[in-house]
Structures are given as C-alpha cells and as structure tokens.
Write a protein that binds this DNA or RNA. Sequence first.
DNA 1: TGACTTTTGAGACATTGTATATCATTTCTC
DNA 2: GAGAAATGATATACAATGTCTCAAAAGTCA
Lengths: 190, 190
Amino acid sequence: MPEIPTFTDKRISQTQRALTNALISLTLEKGYDALTVRDISERANIGYATFFRHFSDKDALLEDVLEKTLSDFLGLIQPVINDPERTVTLVFEHVKQNSDPVRVLLRTRNVSPLLPRIFAFSSQAMLETLIPNPQSLIPPEIAAHHMIVSILELIEWWLEHDMPYPPERMGKIVNALIMQPARKLAFLEK
Amino acid sequence: MPEIPTFTDKRISQTQRALTNALISLTLEKGYDALTVRDISERANIGYATFFRHFSDKDALLEDVLEKTLSDFLGLIQPVINDPERTVTLVFEHVKQNSDPVRVLLRTRNVSPLLPRIFAFSSQAMLETLIPNPQSLIPPEIAAHHMIVSILELIEWWLEHDMPYPPERMGKIVNALIMQPARKLAFLEK
DNA sequence: TGACTTTTGAGACATTGTATATCATTTCTC
DNA sequence: GAGAAATGATATACAATGTCTCAAAAGTCA
C-alpha cells in the first residue's frame, strides 16, 4: 500500500514550482512548440532527468499548469449567465492578475484538450439556465457557443494588445456587443 | 542564372499533389502535431528523402497548403463589409465545398502565422470602409476584430458539427448575431 | 522514336531530442 | 543526528530529422 504523505517535501514543491515558472516564461518568450525539456530544466535550474521524475513529458507539465489556471477561471465564468456585465468585469480583472498563465492557456489551445472541454461545459451550463426561444432564427447551441468563445477571443485580443482598457470597460463592451444581442435573439426574457 | 521552366514536370506536380493530400487526410485523422514526415511520405507513396526535395520540413508543406486555401478565402471575405448576409452565405458555401482544407486551416492556427495575418488584414479592410462612431462605447478595432474572429469561430463550430444548417441559414444567423450588432454599436450609418 | 535530362527510391549517416536507469551526493523529515 | 528521499551527473536506447549518394525510372523535347 502506498503511503500518502501528510506534508509535501520542500524539495518537491520547489522543483515543481521552478518547472512551472520556467514553462510559463519560456512559452511566452519563444512559443510552446519550440521548447525542449532541456530548455525547461535549464531555465528551472534543475537536472534534466529530474524533470521526468515529476512529469511524464512536456505536455504533462503543461496540463498541470493549465488545470490550475482553468479551475480558477471556471468558478468565475459559471455565473456569467445571471449578471453578465458584472461577471465579465470580474473575469477581466482575474485575467489581469494572472495574465501570464492565461496567455499560456490561450496560446496552447491546439495542444491541450482542456479548453474545448471548457467550451462544452460552459455552453451546457448556459443552456440549462436560459430558456430558448423556439421562434428564433438562431439555435440556442449556436448562441451559447458564440457567447463563450467570443468572450475568450476578446480576452485574447485584450492581452495581446497589453490590456488597453480597464476591466470595467471591457465588461460593458462584452455585454453590449456579445451578451445582450445573443440573449435577445435566441432566448426568452425571464 | 536559374532557368525558369515553362511547364512543370508531371512527376513534380504529382508528388506535390500526393503530399498535399496526405497531409490533409492525416491531419484530420490524427492531428498535425502527431504526424511525422515518414507518416506523410508513406501515405503519399513517396520516398522519405523525396519529401525534402520539395519542402524543407513539415511546416513548409503545411504553409503551402494553407496559402492556397487562404487566398481563395480572402477573395470572399473582402467584400463582407457591403452586403454581410449575402457574403457570409457565400463564405459558408465555399467552406462546404472545401471543408477538408478549411478544417486543416482552422486546426493548425497555432502552427502557422497565416491566420493571424488574415485577422489583421481583414480588420484593416473593415476599418477603412466603415466610419467609426466617436460616441461609441466600443472601439472600432474591437468591433472589427470581433466580427472577423466570430465568423471564423462559427465556421469552426459548423464544421465540427458536420454542417447541420445550410449556408443561407448560417448567413442569416451570423448577420443577426454578429454583424448587425457590431455595426450598430460601433459605426455610423452611411 | 530516341537521346538527354531530371526526378525518384533506397539506403547510409550525423544530429538532435526523448525517456529510462544507475549511483554518489545533497537535502529534507522526524 | 539518523534514516529516508530527492537530486545531479552521466550513460544508454531509441525515434525522428535532414543530408548525401547512386542506380533506376520517368519525364521532356527534337
């Protein structure tokens, strides 16, 4: 039977923290695909073989980073349905305070299956809350997908342009440009 | 001085066609990143070394495929500004008739710098045609970026869901959900 | 058709990156 | 401070890239 450690060894958490930071900074510098495990372990000041004692490969380390980033994210996006403007503002504030990992998340879409899962999950949550208008030209799945994906696209734009507007303004913009039109066109007023 | 051949050797065009088709089918089957040059040349029934006589590496072959796909695309997206619904319908019809290469294009965003260039180019074209409303909450660059990117997101959704609605319907949806709101909110009526 | 040019296939090779294993050393935990 | 665990350095097997050579096949053009 494997022992479950009560406390994590300082060396282990230090190593993993260093690898995580190395992955984030290197990905932003030269792109995830261009990285080698050697790049990462050197940046982290960690022996090459030690990398594999913690992660089976480069992708596993990425998954680890993204998982943490995403679980924070999801808690925020969830209630976006009730008060869109306020929630979107909160999302942009959160992004601002975690811009590096979020940049990594958005830049590695193809690599990780996590982001698509978020889309599906969030769309589902929306469809369960809002009431589709059967008369509408626009299928509810399309409206829900559009809302989720467009917000993420605007976050990406905002980050790549060094956050030129404050989160409150972005909340208003997203609400007017994306949320309100989609709700009016595809769902019934409650 | 290098001779410029009047006609291309049949063997050359045959080889390149085979490599192109192999790349497309394999990318849709198991993903671009998972492919090796050996996979591609085997699928194409072409010697491994021969691959490199035509393309410096895997990415160069991809660029070649995407360039052709994109130049077709651009000609269609260009006039989207004047009659959105009609043009978007044409775009979806074009996508339907070229769904395999378009799927590859959308799935390899991270790999190729081509798609981001399209965004920039198309946004620019829009900004030169439409007149921004100085009173608007929404900056014109955001509105333009939103229109371009959201259309592509919907195309991707449509393809991944096996084109469940006809192009005409998609034209109406995109117009109502994306184009009209963005124009009303960020630009002046002409 | 036939001469000649070019492309191709097959195989060898150097190089780079991955992933595993070993062992002495360092650093934690208790 | 003693024992346990993680680490660094090094060696190795392996997979994939990209280059090169040469004989055979297939094209071009007169």
